[in-house]
Simulated assay, not measured.
Amino acid sequence: MVYGKKRPFLLGLVLLLVAACGQPAATQVPAQLPTAVVALSTPVVQPPAAPSAAPAATLPPAPTVVPSPTVAQSWRFVVLGDTRTEGLNPPDVTYAIVKQAAAAQPAIVLAVGDLINALSTPDEVRQQWQNWRAAVAPLGQAATTTPWLLPTPGNHDVQSGDWATGLLTEAFPELPANGPPGLERRAYSVDYGGVRFVSLDSEQRTQMHLLDDAQLAWLEAQLRDNPGHAAIVFSHDPAYPVGPHVGSSLDVYPKARDRLWALLKQYGAVYFAGHEHLYNHQIVDGAHQIIAGTSGSFVYGGFGGEFYHYVVGEVSANAITFVVYDQNGQERDRFTVP
């Protein structure tokens, strides 16, 4: 069985139900989930013309390097999916997941966008970010470095207007400004314990779902000049969506998406995304995509992976083992990437 495969004859009905109800699905998922291995195929969505952008003339500053364990020591990081605040605060399930995930004592925490559901005024959005940071603070108890909390922008984080993007970066002043010009603290890279973590901004309001030439040129430099060799790239949009966001993810611009994927494959990087409120792991043309899509937002039904979750990555000298847990702490999937 291929995990995460759509059910075409139910797809239209499911999409109507998701839009109308927005309720968690009750479908049971096996404790261990097989990984889907898929080959690339010709996109069926006709893309709009991608806005052109010239690569930056000079490279940005080097990635932030924080004190870290030696490669002989194992250590852990946690990945949270969409949490989407309910009003000013995260939903209750997010607090439960944070409590469970804190037991892993992560050194680094990735948050793959849609962390808040931005309200309509700057004062409200500032309060949402303050409350969100307080909610996830227990995950930093074992962290000995700054930054340890690495968010990437989601569409609901910046939906209220151009000013909301500024409030996102204002909320995380510790993030490095080493990304492409104009994307500082939204696209950035951080080195820790032999792993380079690279955030990409797929939610620029003038070109949603597009990783433009400048950002991809910057990414290539981060992957090529990487002394630790291992790399985790993360953004909000999946490159290969499996649920209701087919046609509203990186697949909107297949040429740019394919260039991203060629880089990930060439340098052996793993890609994390959110956006779709489900869990899914695919190996596409030899590169791993993990959709860690809900650590709080309502669960999409009918596409597989229908449970709240978080991911723990355990880094050893020669591999990273990924373990997926639900909100009750039950293991739901496990795989290792050399």
Results as ranks from 00 to 15, higher is better:
K6C: 02
K6F: 06
L11K: 02
L15A: 14
L16E: 11
L16W: 10
L16G: 13
A20N: 11
G22P: 03
A26S: 15
T27R: 15
Q28D: 11
A31H: 00
Q32H: 12
P34C: 02
T35V: 15
V38Q: 12
S41C: 04
T42K: 08
T42Y: 01
Q46N: 12
P47W: 09
P48A: 05
A57V: 12
L59T: 12
P61M: 08
A62T: 07
T64F: 03
A72Y: 01
F77M: 12
V79Y: 07
D82T: 12
R84G: 14
R84F: 03
G87R: 10
N89R: 13
P91Q: 04
V98E: 08
A101F: 14
V112A: 02
G113C: 01
D114V: 01
D114K: 00
I116S: 05
N117C: 02
A118H: 00
S120I: 00
P122C: 03
D123T: 14
V125W: 12
Q127Y: 01
Q127S: 11
W129P: 03
R133Y: 06
A134G: 08
V136W: 10
A137V: 00
P138N: 08
G140S: 01
A142I: 05
T144K: 14
T146V: 14
L150A: 03
L150I: 01
T152S: 14
P153K: 00
N155E: 02
D157H: 11
V158R: 05
V158H: 07
V158T: 14
G161K: 04
T169K: 04
A171C: 04
E174F: 00
A177T: 13
G179Q: 09
P180E: 10
R186M: 13
A187K: 06
V190K: 12
E203C: 04
E203G: 05
M208D: 01
M208Y: 06
L211E: 09
L216A: 08
E220P: 01
R224P: 00
R224V: 05
R224F: 00
R224I: 00
R224A: 13
P227L: 04
A231F: 07
V233F: 07
P238D: 10
P241Y: 08
V242I: 10
P244S: 11
H245E: 10
V246E: 13
V246L: 12
S248Q: 07
S249Y: 03
L250A: 03
D251T: 03
V252F: 05
P254L: 08
A256N: 15
L260M: 13
W261I: 11
K265S: 15
Q266A: 15
F272N: 09
A273G: 07
G274K: 10
E276W: 01
L278M: 15
H281A: 05
Q282K: 12
V284R: 14
V284M: 06
H288P: 01
Q289L: 02
I290K: 00
Y300I: 10
G301V: 06
G302Y: 06
F303E: 01
F303P: 02
F303Y: 15
E306G: 06
F307W: 00
Y310S: 02
S316Q: 15
S316H: 14
V323F: 00
N328Y: 11
